[in-house]
Design a protein around this nucleic acid. Structure first.
Lengths: 385, 385
DNA sequence: ACTTGTTTCTTTCGTGTTAGAACTAAACCA
DNA sequence: TGGTTTAGTTCTAACACGAAAGAAACAAGT
């Protein structure tokens, strides 16, 4: 639909906020005339607007930054877990407008699709130009190839949801989606390469190199979950002692302290106890922090990318034991190497759903039609208008 | 110099041997007319030739495969170690023509540059269009930023060699160069992503993702050397127990068995003893193999690339204990994930120098001038013609 | 021998993208 | 008020590309 340069322009304006044509020339490697020409149809069709950036004191003609037209469109993002749907509405830059969690009544694809359609409608947001759906498992071309926790294989799930909502639906692996969100709109914006590590109910891992998310078959299989991180930690459900799942998942951390104290505790209880200095909780949390640090160090050393984004609903652990994490990184890191840059996304569950929305936004950019007759340049079909 | 498509054509013919225009259309994503147009100047200037692929029995007009003109140019590659230079002459596809090792008399940049110039001249190969030099350390823009084993900092080494030879000189980190060689002409040809692990006097690591070698500052610092691979192994010189250097370097393996047997042995002795079933050597070799397997598994799990190229002068270890390596990989690998594809480059030291030559070849492609007046389209200055 | 069919490659030509030169626009400054 | 600086526009020529049609070279059938 769009030419390469048009797509690049659309992405740059979307990602780098209001931005002048002259800055775009250097960022896209195009000449000023090309920017004038490329921007025109976007302005004519009402996708972009020129801002009035009144004089800021510098000499020269003032810039007329380009920006996405306010209220142009909204997007929905849905992350499916085994227990519930996390659903968000966002603007075109994946900024959060609404966030709700909806319990899942069943795991059958039709039931989940029904729930998603109902939840997206219930958001009460108009002009939804796309819906992104993410889940843990292998995804290809709108189909869920394999999702262990839902027990799905070969489910054409994007179509199921699209049938119910009449809005374009994009489906992606949850970690790829999260990495895309961090890369376009999140903490990884402008960083050419970084790893994403999530902790929570499970362990997640994704990788960005040379400005693009690694999409190989490997991505999304959950390979980070059983990395060996400790020789003395607990055992995970497939028998690895001290693997990432055993050391870092909320469930395993809660179970360790519950066992020590002989009373049921959840993850938040453990963090609270650790913050209060309770010895058993502190030991477990510190060991988890050291394992996280080792995970980070391994990722950085083997991906050759000196930046890591930490996310996931259990990431509060980091704030509680940042020193231990950094000490563990330093221990496994060559002192001559660059220091590791850590970015913490503590937005919890909504980050997952914003990731899903980001996929919908990316696909919407590719659907823009600047040269078609009359019709809406950003097709959004039903769109809950 | 060349347009993107011209460069893509040159690379494709170089890498994929004699290749027809019609196959190039699909590989480069261009139309048949474009291939005719793009190939013409290469043929006119004598860089490429059309082969006479006489009828092979299939119907249709016979293909006229394009190939690099035989004898168009040669290249030299030099790998600098602390003790010697490994010097090769190659053809345009980095195939080995001559290989010599020259002891180094000193570590001063001028001395090393003198030795390189002398060795390259002594190769006795004409039409050398470029010299590639690689070494362990940080390299940028023809300068050695930092090379610990030579004790160099901020040495404009490419210029030093170029002054002596009057041939374009390309300088690169040794592992980046090796990875480029595997990607263009070696075992990684056609594989979009893979890790390179070398064992020998030291441990090396490089990474290819999305068809390009990771060039970040991190690459070439030697970050793979101290990965924790065993909790019971020996201690490396900076005090890590069971790290990659302690488990896998020739020196450490030889020292372990020498200690056990109370007599001096070198690496080859150890491999021979292990092959003969000597218990101490077998134990050490098997543990090294397990460590190598764990290294591979970590790399694959964290880079999300399911292929690994093993190289380095000590890689004979792999043939001796392949089963142990594969068992260790399987143990650290999710059974749902793709099996790891292992490729073993057992060409030893010359692989390093061929890597250096590959860098010179890549740079030479970028120097091709199809549209200049009269002069040689592949500039090679002095070239020892 | 002749035709038909198949595949590869080439020629012609129109389209769309690009950058360069020259120009206009809008501010500040002296 | 007119010079300076920076931003953006108009016009144009160059270029790269692909669609369509044609040419080349062979195989296989009639």
């Amino acid at each position: 639909m769009l030419s390469d340069s048009e797509r690049a322009l659309a992405r740059a304006v979307l990602i780098h906020g209001p931005i002048s044509r002259s800055e775009l020339t250097s960022r896209l490697g195009l000449s000023p005339p090309s920017l004038t020409r490329l921007a025109k149809p976007f302005l004519d069709r009402g996708l972009l607007v020129e801002l009035d950036d009144r004089s800021d004191g510098s000499v020269g003609r003032p810039v007329r930054p380009l920006d996405v037209r306010p209220g142009l469109a909204h997007f929905a993002g849905v992350k499916i877990t085994g227990e519930s749907l996390h659903v968000v509405a966002t603007d075109v830059r994946a900024a959060l407008l609404v966030y709700v969690e909806v319990p899942l009544r069943g795991h059958e694809p039709e039931v989940v699709a029904d729930e998603i359609a109902r939840a997206v409608r219930a958001l009460g947001v108009d002009r939804i130009a796309g819906v992104g759906v993410s889940l843990g498992g292998e995804v290809r071309d709108g189909r869920v190839e394999f999702a262990p926790f839902l027990e799905w294989t070969e489910v054409p799930f994007a179509q199921l949801v699209e049938d119910r909502l009449d809005i374009p639906v994009s489906l992606e692996n949850d970690l790829v989606a999260l990495a895309e969100a961090e890369r376009w709109f999140g903490l990884g914006r402008g960083i050419p390469g970084f790893a994403v590590i999530t902790i929570g109910a499970g362990i997640g891992y994704a990788l960005v190199v040379n400005g693009s998310v690694v999409h190989s078959r490997e991505a999304g299989v959950g390979l980070g979950g059983h990395l060996p991180l400790s020789t003395t930690g607990p055992v995970c459900h497939v028998g690895h002692r001290g693997c990432a799942e055993a050391m870092l998942t909320s469930g395993s951390i809660a179970a360790q302290v519950s066992g020590a104290l002989q009373r049921p505790l959840d993850y938040d209880d453990v963090l609270r106890l650790a913050r209060e200095g309770h010895p058993a909780a502190t030991t477990v949390v510190d060991e988890a922090a050291a394992a996280l640090g080792r995970f980070v160090a391994l990722a950085v050393n083997l991906t050759l990318q000196p930046a890591v984004v930490l996310a996931g609903e259990g990431i509060a652990l980091f704030a509680l034991a940042e020193g231990k994490v950094r000490a563990a990184i330093a221990a496994d890191r060559d002192p001559r190497a660059e220091p590791v840059r850590l970015y913490v996304d503590d937005s919890g569950f909504s980050a997952w759903a914003r990731g899903a929305a980001t996929i919908a936004i990316q696909d919407a950019v590719d659907r823009i039609d600047l040269h078609g007759e009359e019709q809406d340049p950003l097709p959004m079909r039903g769109a809950l208008a």
